[in-house]
Simulated assay, not measured.
Amino acid sequence: MTSQIFPSDVQQSLDLAGIFVFALSGGLLAVRKNMDIFGICVLAEATALGGGVIRDLVIGATPVAAFSNFGYFVTPLAAALVVFFLHPEVERINRAVQTLDALGLGLFCVTGTAKAHDYGLGAVAAIALGMVTAAGGGVIRDVLAGEIPSLLRWDREIYAVPALVGAALVAALIGANRLTGATGTAAALTAFGLRMLALRYGWRAPRAWHRNGSRTSEE
């Protein structure tokens, strides 16, 4: 199976690390929204597992991994407790959290695309689900918190685009029968690098243009 890009124990460790960091971002948003412990746990779970749940439901991989793997379900709860007790400290290392989040983005767009391919989807659909795996949890988090999803906002650095690039690279590697641990890692690092460059230089996706060719000026 192409979705098993890395050895199983390595894959498990990487998945849990990515899930933990995604859950931290969900928990931090819950704190900013003045939610209680239950709300913190819900946003942590939704952020960490939402994209994978959507992917597994679409491809028919049931029961979904988020509920069939005990570690996947419990890890966001551990992150929620960290945020509940130590959120000021976590906020202070937000740059490190963003870096780890970018690593998780790269990992999940790769493994999500490969798993979708294993279940018979074509390249375009697999790429789309790879992006959803990486970014879908953040969309669910923002919707639950009553915000416009970050990846749809022009004033936020690009997030879905790096995931899309990473997923497209994986699809191309699968098509060329070249997807291995090394090439999969390279695709994940490409998505990671694009996200970090976006954070460093404030890269944003273009907004709509007027019909006369000038860009919109509305904020």
Results as ranks from 00 to 15, higher is better:
R95E: 06
G39V: 05
V124T: 05
A145Y: 10
T47K: 15
Y159T: 00
G146T: 01
W154Q: 10
A168T: 04
A79Y: 05
V58K: 03
D142E: 12
F85A: 04
G122M: 00
L86D: 10
A48M: 12
T75M: 12
N69Q: 12
A79I: 00
H117K: 04
A128T: 04
V97W: 09
S150H: 01
D155M: 07
A102D: 09
A79R: 02
A65W: 11
L144T: 14
V83Q: 11
V58W: 02
G51V: 09
G137F: 14
R156F: 04
N69K: 13
V42R: 12
G71D: 14
V124F: 03
L100C: 13
A128M: 12
K115D: 04
L105M: 11
D142N: 14
F73Q: 15
V132Y: 09
G50S: 14
V165C: 00
E45R: 03
L129G: 03
G71M: 15
F85R: 03
L43Y: 07
A145K: 05
A65I: 11
T113P: 04
A167M: 02
V58C: 02
A66K: 06
A96I: 08
G60Y: 10
V161Q: 00
A128P: 01
V110F: 03
L100Q: 06
M131C: 14
V170G: 13
E157K: 03
A163P: 06
T99S: 14
L152M: 07
A123Y: 03
L77C: 10
V97E: 09
A61C: 01
I158Y: 00
G104Q: 13
L151G: 02
L144I: 14
G136T: 07
G106W: 06
T99A: 15
V124M: 01
C41V: 09
F108V: 02
G71A: 14
D142K: 13
V161R: 00
T133F: 12
I148R: 02
V161L: 00
R95C: 02
L100I: 09
G60A: 09
V82H: 05
V53R: 10
Q98E: 11
Y159N: 05
A48P: 13
V90H: 04
I93E: 11
P63T: 07
I59F: 02
F85Q: 04
K115Q: 12
L57W: 10
G71N: 15
G52I: 11
I140C: 07
A145E: 07
D142H: 14
A102S: 15
A114S: 03
E91C: 00
V74Q: 15
G137H: 14
A145P: 09
